[in-house]
Design a protein around this nucleic acid. Structure first.
Length: 912
RNA sequence: GGACCCUUAGCUCAGUUGGUUAGAGCGCUUCCUUGACAUGGAAGAGGUCACAGAUUCGAGUUCUGUAGGGUCCACCA
């Protein structure tokens, strides 16, 4: 028998078992012919990222799902990997280069710079994957993928080429969200609207020729620095105030002194500002559209880096855009155009990553018309892809309903370079749709043209999400037939569950669905093409004040530190206990500590079991069942086994519903309260009885065994350790090599073993528990809680006494008394009314009648209050005639019981 | 402007299809180091379930509205 330490030391076992699992290839995703599979692809973290609490939650959930699937006998595969994270990684390396070497990517040049990024990736990357091992994640590490690996890159290019050939991809000059810091275009999804405090300036634009009384038009703007790029002033066509002005000209108040027309356009809000709008097509999306409708010129006065150029006007040219804004206001004030400056808060689009306002800009970019939009809606509407919680479907469908073409090109270097080659000398700015489809001018292919010397490859790379949207397929070998075979694409696709955060439902989830439908198994039914069947959205981990955890706030605990202090299992279990379906998680370190304490409780329960008696053959369930003795089955056995079956049932349901908090809470309550606090305590007595000992210990062995199987998905390390300590495992075998019985099959096995579980015993055990609590309560009230030399007398009917008598030995021990005797007398002693009769406590000290009366009166008041309520209900004619009979019956019985109790308390009061 | 979520004990949260006296963990009070566990045990205090209506014999639970908090989408310059 191995020596078991007094408390559970996670560090002693975690590394050991992880190494053993890996050595034995426990995590390999292998599917036998016809075997049911369970596949998860990890949401690939940034390759240079480090583990934070969000990852812990997300990956613990996935690991729980995967480990449970293994125990259910499915071929489980969890594919790990990382994302190259274009902007984030490139920015990180650029910063590093600037700080450490004072150089920049432009100084290095594309090739050298990319070498440096690769160095960085090899040196610092994948740290997060190693950290996931600390957490116990059972990924199939041999299948680790990286979005920039050659194989994966090939799938990215394949998708691009295919979509290009289908005409879904085009190059076009349109308004894009330009990030002046990262110096790249962004998709709409990467722009975050933030309320921003600033000013709005009320300005006058002088009419070239007065119209009647009118000498100028009043309008308001938040962006005076762009005035020099104004090409018109727009008013609403039905606005009476301006009907005579349309077609007239005004002087542009900044920059070159030119006349611009007043035009009428529906897009103008009459109620806003003065009812007129300055039109700056180059720097505003709406203005651009107006400009298109009216054939207006586009003047760009802001450059790519966010500085104002010479077209912005001599006064502000060369200035940074916000400094230029200030200066522009001064100029406007000086030339009499400024009427008023008002503090103003409006929504400004920010680059999500760089955190600066984006600049709408007119540019040539690559665009994708999303494929399979209708199918993508259909699969969710029809439940082929189920979202949990379901409400996210609505968000998803709403987005697809309003979907816009996706700007997929990025002006970065770190990423998948777009597989498009331009014939040398071709003017890329003036390409037409026909040019795009002309193989003499544009070459699009996986591997490039045969005569590269005559071509220039596109400089831009793809949006990171235009690679990760292929993740479930690319990691399973698509599109290469051999690789797919090797990865067993056939068996593992579609994946089963995607666990991720709702914040990337558009970025990633929706796009993966469209990609899957477009590329996977062409021609087959949608349910074979979708990338996953379930999407589980886990909440965001927040701090105690409800704020998102972030590096800048410094409010995020270091998961590795938490693992160090509470063990990986404690962290996992504690976190899942507070992670309700679809709600954010407010991080509470107390719960993590609770997880650790629970592990310790489990540890000690097992330790106690090994101390209670010789360990017998625990190697199989059958061996344990063999040791059960039907003749020794008492109510406590029935109750604990019924609770075990119920727990198994609850776990099965909660896994199906992704209700992890329910699952962990049931496990906690079952093991700690039902098993340790009651069953193990009562069994202490039975273990003293040679006739009952083997049976009572076998029940414990059974309960612990089944519990470990249920617990392992949440806490794999301690479960594995105890599995071996308790002798459930064999040399070279692991917990996961066993199958998890269902509640039904275990119940059937118990029946076969002559120990059919009678769930109704639970009620009677509850009465014994109540009895115990009342007796302890009485002792505490009489200030003899710790004394064991007191005696109890139970005044009970013969029938009630027969219910208590078989349990006397246990009760005496649990309550801490010398004896409980059956009495017909009515002693003058402190008493309490129990389910079995009136229980008297003899402490050997004289009773204080006043104190006793006070105590009983308090009790009486409570009972009477309750009686009142119940009587009122039963007196209600409507209740009696309409409520279901069972409910009425329950109320009647309750009333009878309460009245009996009341009488007994009154009688006791009279004896004082 | 559109959609969604939340509000239950001091704190963090459970409360299944409406049905006895609303639960857990932490914290708090009292007692206990008795031979699994002080990372523990026993007992206890603590809640008008945000508010107002409606439906119902009966509402924490269903519906409507209000207030407060949060999220997403749209973006009036």
């Amino acid at each position: 028998m191995p020596e078991i330490t007094k408390s559970y030391e996670a560090r002693n076992v975690e590394a050991k078992w992880y190494a053993a699992w890996q050595e034995a290839g426990c995590f390999a995703g292998k599917a036998a012919e016809g075997q049911e599979t369970y596949t998860i692809v990890i949401p690939p973290p940034n390759v240079t990222g480090i583990l934070h609490m969000g990852h812990v939650l997300n990956n613990t959930l996935q690991d729980a799902l995967i480990r449970r699937a293994r125990l259910e006998g499915k071929a489980a595969l969890w594919v790990p990997g990382t994302d190259h994270a274009g902007i984030a990684t490139q920015t990180m390396v650029e910063k590093h280069l600037k700080k450490e070497e004072g150089t920049s990517r432009h100084e290095l040049g594309r090739e050298k710079f990319l070498e440096r990024v690769w160095d960085w990736r090899h040196e610092k990357g994948d740290k997060i994957l190693r950290q996931l091992r600390e957490l116990g994640c059972s990924c199939d590490w041999d299948r680790t993928h990286f979005t920039m690996d050659e194989g994966y890159s090939r799938s990215v290019r394949t998708a691009f080429v295919s979509l290009f050939e289908k005409g879904q991809i085009y190059r076009g000059k349109r308004m894009v969200n330009w990030c002046p810091v990262s110096k790249t275009a962004l998709s709409d999804e990467e722009v975050e609207m933030r309320p921003t405090k600033g000013h709005i300036w009320r300005l006058r634009y002088e009419l070239v020729e007065p119209v009647g009384e009118l000498t100028h038009i009043v309008l308001e703007t938040t962006r005076p620095e762009t005035i020099a790029a104004d090409v018109a002033v727009a008013v609403h066509p039905r606005d009476e105030r301006f009907k005579d002005l349309v077609g007239k000209k005004v002087w542009r108040p900044l920059g070159e002194r030119v006349q611009i027309p007043v035009i009428a356009d529906e897009a103008v809000e009459m109620e806003f500002g003065g009812g007129a709008l300055k039109v700056t097509p180059a720097h505003d999306k709406v203005d651009f559209e107006i400009g298109q409708r009216h054939g207006l010129e586009v003047i760009e006065c802001i450059d790519a880096d966010g500085t104002l150029n010479e077209l912005a006007g001599a006064e502000i040219a060369g200035m940074e855009r916000f400094a230029g804004r200030k200066k522009a206001v001064e100029v406007l004030e000086a030339n009499g155009s400024l009427i008023e400056a008002k503090p103003y808060e409006n929504n400004v689009g920010y680059s999500q990553r760089a955190g600066v306002p984006i600049e709408p800009r007119l540019m040539q970019q690559w665009w994708l018309r999303y494929p399979r939009v209708e199918e993508a809606k259909q699969v969710v509407r029809e439940g082929h892809v189920q979202m949990h919680p379901a409400r996210w479907s609505k968000v998803y469908l709403n987005w697809l309903d309003n979907i816009q073409d996706w700007c997929i090109s990025r002006q970065l270097w770190w990423g998948h370079r777009i597989p498009v080659w331009y014939a040398k000398g071709l003017d890329k700015e003036t390409l037409t749709e026909a040019d795009l489809r002309d193989p003499a001018k544009i070459h699009v292919s996986l591997d490039g043209p045969a005569d590269p010397e005559n071509w220039d490859q596109e400089e831009d790379v793809l949006d990171t999400w235009a690679s990760s949207w292929l993740w479930p397929m690319g990691t399973l070998g698509w599109p290469d037939a051999d690789e797919q075979k090797q990865a067993n694409f056939d068996a593992f696709y579609p994946t089963t569950t995607l666990a991720t955060g709702a914040d990337i439902i558009f970025f990633w989830v929706a796009r993966m669905i469209m990609a899957g439908l477009e590329f996977a198994r062409p021609g087959e039914p949608v349910e074979r093409r979708i990338p996953f069947r379930h999407v589980y959205f886990n909440g965001i981990v927040r701090d105690k004040q409800g704020r998102k955890m972030s590096k800048t706030l410094g409010n995020s605990p270091d998961p590795l530190d938490l693992i160090e202090r509470y063990g990986a299992d404690g962290l996992r279990f504690g976190l899942l206990q507070i992670a309700p379906l679809g709600q954010d998680v407010k991080f509470d370190e107390g719960r993590i500590e609770g997880g650790k304490n629970f592990c310790n409780k489990l540890w000690n329960a097992c330790r106690f079991r090994t101390m209670s008696g010789e360990m017998s053959d625990n190697r199989t369930l059958a061996a344990i069942l063999d040791r059960l003795d039907g003749d020794q089955m008492d109510e406590d056995d029935h109750a604990i086994l019924a609770a075990l079956l119920d727990t198994m049932d609850t776990l099965e349901k909660s896994f199906a519903e992704f209700e992890f908090a329910t699952a962990t809470q049931r496990l906690y309550g079952f093991f700690w309260n039902e098993f340790c606090d009651w069953y193990v305590e009562v069994a202490k007595t039975r273990v003293q009885d040679p006739a009952a000992k083997q049976h009572a210990l076998a029940v414990q062995d059974l309960v612990i065994r089944q519990f470990l199987l249920l617990f392992e998905p949440f806490a794999p390390f301690i479960s594995e350790e105890l599995w071996h300590v308790m002798g459930y495992g064999r040399e070279g075998k692991f917990l996961q090599d066993n199958r998890l019985e269902t509640a039904e099959t275990l119940a059937a096995s118990l029946t076969d073993a002559g120990c059919a579980v009678d769930a109704s015993a639970s009620t009677r055990v509850e009465q014994l528990q109540t009895f115990t609590t009342l007796a302890r309560q009485l002792k505490a009230e009489q200030s003899v809680a710790q004394k064991r030399d007191v005696t109890f007398q139970l005044q009970a009917s013969d029938e009630a006494w027969t219910m208590v008598e078989p349990h006397l030995a246990k009760l005496v021990r649990l309550i801490g008394t010398e004896s409980i005797t059956h009495t017909a007398e009515e002693p003058s002693l402190p008493a309490v009314v129990s389910p079995f009769g009136t229980l008297y406590l003899d402490t050997g000290i004289k009773v204080d009648p006043a104190a006793e009366r006070a105590r009983l009166n308090k009790e009486l008041t409570q009972v009477e209050k309750h009686i009142g309520g119940t009587q009122a209900r039963l007196a209600n004619e409507a209740f009696v005639s309409k409520a279901p009979p069972a409910v009425i019956e329950g109320a009647r019985k309750q009333l009878t019981d309460l009245e009996a109790k009341r009488e007994e308390i009154r009688r006791l009061l009279n004896t004082l």
